[in-house]
Design a protein around this nucleic acid. Structure first.
Lengths: 191, 191
DNA sequence: CCTACCGATCGGTAGG
DNA sequence: CCTACCGATCGGTAGG
C-alpha cells in the first residue's frame, strides 16, 4: 500500500470513527487529505472498499490469533488468557480500524456481509472450544457457552472505548486486567 | 402517543435496527406503514426526532432505575445486583429501541449529542458509587472503577445481541446470570 | 490529480 | 393523507 493510500485509509477510518460510515462522505475524506473527491478514485475503487478492506483485514488478524492460540497451548485457562491477549493486542494496535470494524460492518454489501458474519461466527466458535475444554477439565463453571462468549467478547471490545495508547497500561497489562476480571469476577474472595 | 404514531415509531426502530439510522429513509418507513413519506410529517416533526425521542426516553428509564436502586438498597452487592436487574429489565422490554439507543446515538445533532453524553456519564457515575461503596466494605476487589463500569455495562448491553423475548429465560433470570458472571467470574472455585 | 458534471436519492415543504 | 416538487448532496465517471 502506497504512503498516499495509507494516508487515505487512516484519514477515512478516523472520520468514520467519529461520524460513522454513512455520514462520512468522499468529499470529507478528500478535503482531509487535501485533494478533490474525484482524485480519491486513483487510489481506491469505492467507498465500500475502504470499509470492506478494513473489516476483512482485521478479521484475518483475529482468525490468525485464535488459530495460533489453539495450536500452541493446551491448558484451557492458559488458552483463554492467550486468546484474550491476542484479541487485545489487535484491538489496541488498530484502534480506529477496530472501531469501524465493530460498529460499521453492517454497511457492507449483502455478499460481504454474509461472509463477515460467517467468519465472526467461526471466531466465536474458537472461543467456545476453549470454554468447553475448560468445563471438561473442571476449571470453568458450566455455562451457556454462547452467552459467555458474547459476554467475553463484549468485555474485550469495550477496550477501545477507554484505552489510551499513550497511557500507562501496555496492551499486555490490559489483557491481564481483562482476564483477571473475566476469570475471577468482581467479588473479593479474600474476606 | 396515538396508535398510528406508535406504529410509526416501532416500524422506524425496527428498520433502524437492521439498516442503521442513516440508511433508513423516510420513504422506507413510510412504505412499511403504507403511506407516503410526506404523510409521516403529520405524525412526527423530523427524522432526527425519531432518534432523539427514542434515546432520551430510554435515558430517562435508565436514570430512574439507578436512582431508585441507590435509594432503596444499602448493601453494595445487593445494590449492584438490583442495578443490573433494572438495566436488564429496560433492555429486554425495549429491544429495538435499545439497539438504536446503543448504536445510533452518534447521529444526534450537536446539542442533543452533548446532553446525551452527559447523561450517560451521570448514569455511569451511579454505578461507580456502588463500586466504591463495595470496595470500602471490602466486598469488591479494588479496581479501576472507570474500567470496570465500562466493562459491566458492555456486558449488560450485549444482552440485546442474544436475548430472545420468547425464549426460556425471563429478564430476571438473565439479570441473575449476568450478576453471577460479573461477581464470580468464569472460574470454578469449588475445585 | 483536477475540472466539470451526472443520475439518483435524500429530508422536507406547499397546498390541498 | 396525497400529489407534486424543491434544493442539497451523494458516490462516482469522463476526459484530460
Amino acid at each position: 500500500m502506497s504512503p498516499r493510500k495509507l494516508e487515505i485509509f487512516q484519514t477515512a477510518l478516523s472520520l468514520m470513527k467519529s461520524k460513522g460510515y454513512a455520514n462520512t462522505t468522499m468529499r470529507d475524506i478528500a478535503s482531509a487529505v487535501n485533494m478533490e473527491a474525484a482524485s480519491l478514485y486513483n487510489h481506491i475503487t469505492s467507498k465500500e472498499d475502504l470499509l470492506a478492506i478494513t473489516c476483512f483485514d482485521l478479521a484475518n488478524q483475529f482468525e490468525k490469533g485464535i488459530l495460533e492460540v489453539n495450536d500452541i497451548y493446551f491448558d484451557a485457562k492458559e488458552k483463554l488468557r492467550m486468546a484474550i491477549e491476542a484479541h487485545t493486542q489487535i484491538l489496541t494496535a488498530n484502534l480506529d480500524a477496530s472501531y469501524v470494524f465493530l460498529h460499521e460492518w453492517r454497511h457492507l454489501s449483502a455478499d460481504k456481509l454474509n461472509e463477515f458474519k460467517q467468519r465472526r461466527d467461526n471466531y466465536e466458535n474458537g472461543f467456545i472450544e476453549i470454554l468447553k475444554l475448560g468445563e471438561n477439565e473442571g476449571v470453568f463453571n458450566e455455562v451457556d457457552e454462547k452467552f459467555v462468549v458474547i459476554t467475553i467478547l463484549s468485555t474485550l471490545n469495550a477496550t477501545i472505548e477507554w484505552y489510551k495508547p499513550n497511557g500507562s497500561l501496555s496492551p499486555k497489562q490490559v489483557a491481564q486486567k481483562l482476564s483477571d476480571f473475566i476469570l475471577n469476577g468482581l467479588l473479593n474472595t479474600k474476606n
